[in-house]
Design a protein around this nucleic acid. Structure first.
Lengths: 207, 207
DNA sequence: CCGTTAAGGTACTTCGCGTACCTTAACGGG
DNA sequence: CCCGTTAAGGTACGCGAAGTACCTTAACGG
């Protein structure tokens, strides 16, 4: 019993912090933000609440940090050379993400009352959505697939805003593919396409 | 303090229930859904928690009932004969409502985790938004102000969905008029308006 | 008039956040 | 190499709020 786990070497600094964040992330993924308790995180991390409160001022801050720790990897935009495919891909990715446990965490965090956390959450570009599709739209304009007048954050943000809206209405369940297609074909493409786009209505039988 | 002189006659049934709902509504309006506690409601209503729990199974149910009690009055759609004005009016009304204490209550309720309450909330047509603007859009199509192909719930729901999205991003603060105008002028009108000049010019609005 | 029903009152139990306070291990400068 | 400083471990609170138990008491109604 040389390295018996019962008597673990005392962790400090970054190592401990990493362990705590992992534990907190696991808790978020299993129990969600509701049911995320400091006691459970501390127990899972093999430490105690004090250590948590020395690093994060309150529960929400820890949860937010854990989420950030999870969602650390960077996202790469699609570039298929086709606006419709690009936007659909982004919508599908976002749909998957928001329907995943990770997305549930995010939504749980968004519904917190803590103004400080909301500030932080909104600070992350993750939430804008506008900026995400803007480059896609930009390329589409360059290819002549979209009107230059449509090249605005407000317009580029429409698809993700509508997707988010679906989540508000439906709850946690994944948004069906048909809705994504509607968002793109009934709203976004008619909105951004060149003036000759009235043809699209007849041409979308091609899909 | 002292409750000396007023030994109130004991209220029963509907009278008591009404008093409780009023108290709960007042609490919602002053403290919001967070900070809405059964103890406070009971004290404000001059009764005790037991009476509340005999009528509503839990805090969220009572809050929801109180909100319904507040938002009882019906809404009448604008019909100015001009699509842009109609939509802007609806957006301004919704903006006012959501920025008001009442709207804060609604948003607070929407963020509850209780699935039962969410079910009830979504049951109310209040949330759809799509159906709200659909008649407005219908009239616009009849006047030739909008393409008939745009006459879909998904399209009609866009303005309110975008407005709601703004609330998610900004928090409780009222959305500035400029954003409403952007939503209408940069998104909704380009989306629904007739695309080819010939169609717009010809007075084939004959119905 | 009296029994049934529902309101009033009080005191719990349970949970989870956040804090206090002490003990103990690791680190690191002299 | 020692010892003081720092940070982790441990335990026990205080507090607020949800719900519950149980009894007392007023109103209603046959």
């Amino acid at each position: 019993m040389s390295d018996h786990p019962t008597i673990r070497a005392r962790r400090r600094g970054p190592a401990l912090e990493e362990a705590i964040l992992r534990a907190a992330a696991d808790e978020l993924l299993t129990t969600g933000y509701a049911g995320f308790t400091m006691d459970r995180v501390a127990r899972r991390a093999g430490t105690n609440k004090n250590v948590l409160y020395r690093r994060w001022p309150h529960r929400a801050a820890l949860a937010l940090a854990a989420y950030g720790h999870l969602a650390a990897e960077r996202y790469t935009l699609p570039d298929t050379g086709n606006l419709r495919e690009d936007v659909l891909t982004v919508l599908r990715d976002a749909n998957r993400h928001w329907a995943s446990p990770l997305g549930e965490v995010l939504r749980g965090l968004l519904t917190t009352k803590d103004p400080e956390v909301l500030q932080l959450l909104r600070g992350r570009g993750t939430e804008g959505g506008a900026d995400l599709l803007l480059p896609v739209l930009e390329r589409a304009v360059a290819r002549g697939e979209a009107r230059p007048q449509a090249l605005k954050p407000r317009v580029a943000g429409v698809p993700l805003a509508l997707l988010r809206h679906e989540y508000l209405l439906r709850g946690s369940t994944e948004v069906p593919e048909a809705v994504l297609v509607e968002i793109v074909d009934d709203v976004f493409l008619p909105l951004v396409q060149a003036v000759t786009a009235s043809v699209t209505a007849t041409a979308d039988a091609a899909k």
